[in-house]
Nucleic acid binder design. Structure first.
Lengths: 237, 237
DNA sequence: GATTATAATTTGTATATACATGTTTTGCAA
DNA sequence: TTGCAAAACATGTATATACAAATTATAATC
């Protein structure tokens, strides 16, 4: 938190979440925010753009920044939120089981991550238990040259926290695909399928800020427990 | 297309799609683009931010704007693209069947659209046929006070085109939810389910630029033909 | 009181400057 | 030739100004 406009963004998000500004109402005008935060209008506008992009406000010319009702669409699987961040926000009891943590050589994954075919990759297989049921199976492949050390403990708590805060890698964006597929033997083994014969599969390619692909993830969800919530702005063609 | 930076954005998108700039390479520097488009750096930066948000480039400090490989993640169900826009981009043969086009009063939908309970709503039920199979069932509710006139022909071609281009309404953003649900009698009636007993349901609340909710859509997809592709940037917590 | 015209407010766009920070290139020195 | 330091280059942040466009508040007029 060193940039002024990012700080202002976080402050305003906090204020909205505290209910300081109610949905349907408006934020103070840009001019007022300038005075309050003792900064220029452009800096305020950068902060407001972040709020707009993340679905907190809608700017209406002549009126102001209208606060949106974000309650109805919490639980964003979107935006690269990790399982731990999710569970904590939901406040549900959750547990992670680590089934595999090995170094492998998978040519196919290497090709998709754009690294030499002989490269070592961490393979992490974890199941996620919520409310006593194992409903998510996560299979991760990470480039070992970027994440050199990995322990079962890290895999059990939070990969993302370790990668971002301990290793200082800059996770920046991801390409993501959601499809429905028949269950595999692996699903049967590690999940409480409850009779379901299909799972929701989320495949993600995760990139760093310097555009190097470093992770491939396959997240397999039991369909009755799956929900994806998104906020999308229309891009004019 | 009147704004300079939006025009520049579209021009650069077109250039990238034409292959003028290849994935992995960089765009001309901001300074160069200023000269080329005869404009200021801030204007160029606004255009580049649009490219970045939509997954065309990744800006790397000190290096430049690296062009990303968007081929791998076309077909964005995300971003409020309409069925017609989608089908055209895919180049597949498609067909729309209009099963219902009526004015109704649905208290539940009214409440969610934040309009008076007695309001008239257009109810549109359409099935989408691709490659000879009816695989998508779309149920739309639209506020009649905003879309006063609606014909079967419009419903068959493109609602969005009519709403945006004919009526001049400014479709701005949507809250979206994806879940898996058991098939209903309606699904059985209007879709070629091919033995599937579950469908992928996308529920969307669509809003105008002035934050008025005006449409509720439920899009029901046969699971084997469903795919959702997304580009997501990580929002630092 | 109701309508209309005007002014004030608010966001949108375009431009300019200064400095910070990270990357690449260049040139000098060992 | 190699290695290192300096310069050049690229993007990031912060600030300032001017004007456009949409909305809202105010004043004036009938």
């Amino acid at each position: 938190m060193k940039n002024k406009y990012v700080e202002i963004y976080h402050k305003l998000v906090k204020d909205i979440q505290k209910g300081e500004y109610t949905a349907g109402g408006t934020l103070p005008s840009e001019h007022d925010l300038c005075a309050r935060f003792e900064t220029s209008r452009e800096t305020i506008r950068k902060a407001l753009n972040l709020l707009s992009q993340n679905g907190y406000i809608q700017k209406v010319r002549g009126k102001g920044s209208v606060v949106l009702d974000r309650d109805k669409f919490e639980f964003p699987v979107s935006g690269l939120t990790s399982f731990k961040e999710l569970s904590e926000r939901l406040g549900q009891s959750f547990q992670t089981h680590v089934h595999e943590l090995t170094l492998v050589k998978e040519a196919g994954v290497c090709r998709q991550l754009n690294c030499p075919e002989g490269s070592h990759l961490w393979k992490v297989v974890r199941s996620r238990e919520i409310g006593g049921e194992r409903i998510i199976l996560d299979k991760d492949f990470l480039r070992q040259d970027l994440v050199y050390d990995l322990t079962k403990e890290i895999a059990q708590t939070s990969l993302y926290h370790y990668i971002e805060n301990e290793l200082g890698l800059d996770i920046s964006f991801a390409k993501k695909e959601i499809v429905i597929e028949p269950v595999t033997a692996e699903d049967e083994e590690f999940l409480d399928l409850n009779g379901h014969d299909q799972v929701v599969v989320i495949r993600s390619y995760v990139y760093l800020g310097d555009t190097t692909a470093f992770q491939f993830t396959e997240s397999r969800h039991r369909p009755d427990k799956f929900q994806f919530v998104d906020f999308a702005r229309r891009t004019k063609v």
